[in-house]
């Protein structure tokens, strides 16, 4: 099978597009970085890709709220194309700001109806610390709903955000997501029992149920706050000089999963 084609969609303020493309290339994908204006002009462009990635950054400055403006553009102009993309068995990944965009576009856990934008199940809001923070976190996967996380149990990755706290509208919405197996990635404290609540700084933002990543009901759309593209090379690990971390970074496995999904 030929290498799958991955589209990295950038907008004004996107700033993790280059390294995300590099991670996907390293995993074996052909990549292309396109401005969202190009896709808005010609939605057919999406057809040539199997993987769509919304990378990290500050789309439109995160003005109004993180990911909101690009999320709205997608909701109003690209929702149909994106659902078509997903329903064709393709993969969509949102990292950090990309996760915020997916949440706010309604694509991940919301309603497909534009007029229903007020009926969001959950959102990503300000960290409990009230500020942007860059730190490394331990993660554990839950269930096997998302092909991105297949075979992965644990990862150690950096987060770097101000608005990454996942909150839900009501407890039953949370139960529904859990029952569906959509809460696929959690912050964890490897030195405590898995029952103990995960607190700051292991849970860096105060997310409910220590949620770090969520997929949609198909599992093929995944959003996560941590940055897998920042841990591809061994020297990106904060303690590689202490001999910690493997020969390749934990984040690479996710991109390899995306690539091998199409082979």
């Amino acid at each position: 099978m030929s290498r799958p084609h991955a589209l990295i969609l950038r907008a004004p303020g996107t700033n993790c597009d280059r390294e995300t493309a590099f991670a996907l290339q390293t995993a074996g994908a052909e990549t292309r970085i396109l401005h969202v204006n190009r896709v808005l002009e010609n939605q057919k462009d999406l057809d040539e890709f199997q993987i769509l990635c919304l990378p990290g950054g500050f789309s439109y400055g995160d003005d109004v709220a993180a990911g909101r403006i690009l999320g709205n553009q997608i909701r109003h102009h690209l929702a149909e194309a994106m659902y078509k993309f997903r329903d064709a068995g393709k993969l969509i990944l949102g990292i950090c700001n990309g996760f915020q965009v997916l949440i706010k576009s309604g694509l991940l856990i919301g309603s497909q109806d534009v007029s229903e934008s007020n009926n969001m199940a959950g959102t990503l809001t300000w960290n409990d610390s009230g500020k942007f923070e860059d730190r490394w976190v331990h993660l554990e996967t839950c269930g096997n709903k998302s092909p991105f996380l297949e075979g992965i149990e644990k990862m150690y990755l950096p987060v770097a955000h101000a608005e990454g706290k996942f909150v839900v509208k009501s407890p039953d919405r949370l139960d529904a997501l859990a029952t569906e197996g959509q809460l696929v990635l959690r912050y964890c404290d490897p030195f405590k029992s898995s029952e103990a609540p995960v607190t700051f700084p292991e849970n860096p933002n105060g997310s409910v149920e220590a949620t770090a990543g969520i997929c949609d009901h198909t599992g093929r759309v995944l959003g996560l706050m941590p940055h897998p593209e920042r841990y591809i090379d061994r020297t990106q690990h904060p303690r590689w000089t202490r001999g910690e971390g493997g020969a390749e970074g934990d984040g690479l496995a996710m991109f390899k999963n995306a690539v091998s999904y199409f082979s």
Binding site: K131, F132, R135, R230, Q236
Partner: peptide, 17 residues
């Protein structure tokens, strides 16, 4: 920590070790 010191993914020795 308030500064993203890892974006662009080139970080090999970080300010905090």
């Amino acid at each position: 920590r308030q500064y993203d010191h890892e974006v662009q993914a080139g970080s090999a020795v970080k300010p905090l070790v």
